[in-house]
Structures are given as structure tokens and as C-alpha cells.
Computed example of a mutant assay.
Amino acid sequence: MTTTRRAALKLLGATSVAATAGLAVQTTGSQPAAAQTGAPSGRVPKGLRPGGELDQLIADMAARDVFSGNVLITHRGQTVLARSYGMADKARSVPNGPDTLFGLASVAKLFTAVSVAQLAQRAKLQYYDTLGMHVDGFPAEIADRVTIHHLLTHTSGLGDFFGDPGYWDVARTWTSVQQVTDGVGQFVRKETLAFPPGAGSQYSNSAYHLLGEIVARVSGQEYHDYVREHIFRTARMRSADFYTLPQLREDRRIAHGYYRPEGSRDRIDNIDEQIFAPGAFATCAQMEQFAHALWEEKLLNPAYTRLTLSPKLPGLPPPGPVPLTVFTGYGPGATLAGDRWSYGHNGGASNGAAAELVFYPDSGYVTVIMSNYEIESIRGIPGLARKLIVEQG
């Protein structure tokens, strides 16, 4: 997603998933629209349904202006709960709605990971390939030791180009996608390793930028064009795309980010702080489609779907109402809660973006949460949704 200096330290990612009819209520602000027809399975817990515990939490957060955005929960392709609150563009009085495009932040790393898996499936690359086999400009201690596996699992030792000295001053001068790609690449090539590859774990936006470079080099297509053709088109994510700053200013479908400056009671639009860099934007429904396309093996064959989703590296579980065992996969995180596996990714920024996609292939649930407020704006929603899904038995 397009980002700013203020978001650099808290940014969870910027590398460069429509539900069918079900029992749902779509709201804008606090006024519900007409309910859709066709009830989902009776096994859906009441707490997930309209008027349930989760719905009440979201409504309360929106009423207190803590949350602004969309929430979509589906079960086996049927909508269980769909909610929209707040404004996509306050200056133009455009409300958030089901067709609003939200910045995906680090959730977009899923597109990079699936692109790599598609190329591996076609034998265009291998996960043990070293960085130097596909891109140049690195010293031997990086080029010959860092592998695609390391890049995907955040074990390369590389860091975060957003925090590199001088990055923001230079980034403000970029006016084309190629300038952004080349410019970010130059900063990443100046980084040193925080630890030997495979000897530690450090979340790395720089690593995923390099995976995008590898996708472009191996496929022969510009990275964003590859994702448009092989992921967005296949998953039928029609308006999902990589939008640049001029488009963010003009396109009424795109939610502006809002945040409170330190010491202020009011949120401001972050549009004047943005840089040109293209960011991934999609609707909740499109991300739900992406989730189904991934686990239903429409994007990858069965073997590479399992390879992408399977646990690779254990991690520390986040606090929440359900005890979790978490792992890094090849892009998606894999989480075990009780006897339920789920997969997904989250992301956001301190200046007005939060997103989370989680899907449960065994039970058929998908939860998509998107906000155009600070990343803290969704706190409590994902944990309660997971608790209700897992505890239904």
C-alpha cells in the first residue's frame, strides 16, 4: 500500500482475498440495509450472525469512532455477516460500502508468495535457489547464501527498506512504477544482514521486495502485471489492483486513510503524506474470493497449494482469547487453535490502514477485516471472530 514516513516503524507491509447470497445485513454508519436471503448452515454460531456478539462489538467500536471499514464473514461461500461503517472519503462524503477498495498493506505479500509458488510449479525456479541466481547487485555473502526459502519465511537476515537512512527523502521524488522498483532495489542492495541466513527470524519488507524482483525476472513480466494476470484475473478480483497516488486522489472507490496526529483529538486524511508507490487495494469480497481460489486449488495445483500453506517455522503467538500455535508458511501464516487450522495474513500502518484475511479450509469459514483507520482500530475483532469459529466445535 502507499505509505508515509510516519508509518515506517509500524508498517507491517507494503510489497509490492464476492460472497454468494446468505443471511447478511449490510450497514453504512449505523443504519442497516435490507437483509439478503438464504440462511447459511445452522452450524454457524449465533455469535457470528447479525445481532450476535461479534456484530455488537463492531457496532460499538464504530459508534465510538474506533473502527471505520468493512467486515465480511462467510461460511462455505455464504455470507454470514457483512458490515460497513465510516467514511471512505470524508471531504467528499463518500461512505465505506461493499465496493470500497481498502489498502491491503502486508496482506499483499500473499500475492507475491503465490506468484513464487506458481513459478516453482512450472519449474521456473526452486525454493532453494539463491538470490544471486535470479537478481544481481549483491555481495557474495548475500547473493550466494540467501535463498528463496529464506526470503519467504523472513529468515534471510534482511531488514525493512522503509527504515533505511534517506529512503523517504528519495521516495518523494519518484513518479513512475519503474522508478519505485529500481529505487527500492537500490536501498535493499545497500543493506547488511542482521544474522546469517536461516540463523534467526526478522520480519522483512526488503525480502518481499526482492521476491517481487525475482517474479519479474523469471516470468519476464513486470511484477504488478504478473499478479494482475495470474492472480487477480484467475480469482476474478475485478477491481483489485495496484493503485498509485494520483489514482488514490481521484478514485472515489478507494478509502482514504485517517489517523490522529500526536496530541490531536481529530483524525486527518493522510493523502497529502503519501508517496507515488503503487499499493495493492481490494474489497472484502475480492479477498474472500482470493481465499477460496487459493485453498480450492485454482491458483496452484494440490501439491503446491499444500506446500504454500504448510507450517515452516514456529513463531510466538499473539495475545488473545484463544490459545494459539502459530507458524510461518511460504507467505500465509498457519495457525492451530484447538484442532482447527487456519491460514492468512494481516497488515497495516499507523497512519490509517489495517487489514486481516483468515480462512479455515476444513470448516469453510473466511473472515476479512479492513479498516481505513490506524492498525489499532481492528483490535479485538479478529480474536473474537476466531474464538467463535473455533469454539463452535
Rank of each mutant, 00 (worst) to 15 (best):
Gly344Met: 05
Leu72Trp: 03
Ser41Gln: 06
Ile148Cys: 05
Val114His: 05
Gly331Arg: 11
Ala120Arg: 14
Gly137Asn: 07
Gly329Thr: 05
Thr335Gln: 06
Met87Ser: 12
Lys387Leu: 03
Asn301Val: 02
Phe195Asn: 06
Asp272Arg: 13
Ile271Lys: 07
Val135Lys: 12
Val326Glu: 08
Ala35Met: 09
Ala291Val: 02
Arg6Gly: 10
Trp174Asp: 05
Asn96Gln: 07
Arg233Gly: 02
Val107Cys: 11
Val390Ala: 11
Arg386Asp: 03
His224Leu: 07
Phe242Trp: 12
Thr328Gly: 09
Gly393Leu: 10
Ser84Phe: 08
Pro40Met: 04
His230Asn: 15
Ser93Phe: 11
Thr325Ser: 10
Ala285Tyr: 02
Thr27His: 09
Ala207Phe: 08
Ser363Thr: 14
Phe242Pro: 00
Val146Asp: 04
Thr112Gln: 08
Val107His: 03
Phe67Asp: 02
Val17Ser: 09
Leu158Trp: 13
Asp362Lys: 14
His256Arg: 15
Leu294Ser: 07
Leu125Gly: 03
Leu152Cys: 11
Leu309Lys: 06
His150Ala: 08
Gln118Phe: 09
Gly166Ser: 11
Gly333Glu: 11
Tyr208Arg: 06
Arg252Pro: 01
Arg217His: 09
Gln26Gly: 03
Thr328Pro: 00
Lys46Ile: 00
Gly132Phe: 09
Phe111Cys: 13
Ala19Glu: 04
His209Arg: 11
Ser156Phe: 07
Gln179Thr: 00
Pro332Cys: 08
Glu288Gly: 00
Glu262Leu: 13
Val17Pro: 11
Asp55Cys: 05
Lys124Tyr: 01
Arg76Gly: 02
Ser350Thr: 10
Ala255Ile: 02
Ser377Arg: 10
Ala207Ile: 05
Leu104Ala: 11
Gly352Pro: 05
Asn205Ile: 02
Ala120Met: 05
Lys124Cys: 09
Val94Ile: 15
Gly183Phe: 08
Gly97Ala: 14
Met61Pro: 00
Ala24Glu: 10
Thr175Leu: 04
Phe138Pro: 03
Trp174Gly: 07
Leu245Arg: 15
Ser342Asn: 10
Ser84Pro: 02
Thr74Pro: 03
Leu307Ile: 01
Phe276Met: 08
Ala255Val: 03
Arg340Val: 14
Asp225Arg: 14
Leu357Gln: 02
His149Tyr: 14
Ser16Tyr: 09
Gln392Glu: 13
Arg265Ser: 12
Asn301Gln: 05
Ser342Thr: 02
Tyr360Leu: 10
Gly333Cys: 01
Ser350Ala: 15
Ala293Lys: 06
Lys46Arg: 13
Tyr304Gly: 00
Asp169Pro: 00
Phe281Val: 07
Gly348Gln: 09
Ser350Gly: 11
Thr155Asp: 04
His154Phe: 12
Pro50Met: 10
Ser219Phe: 06
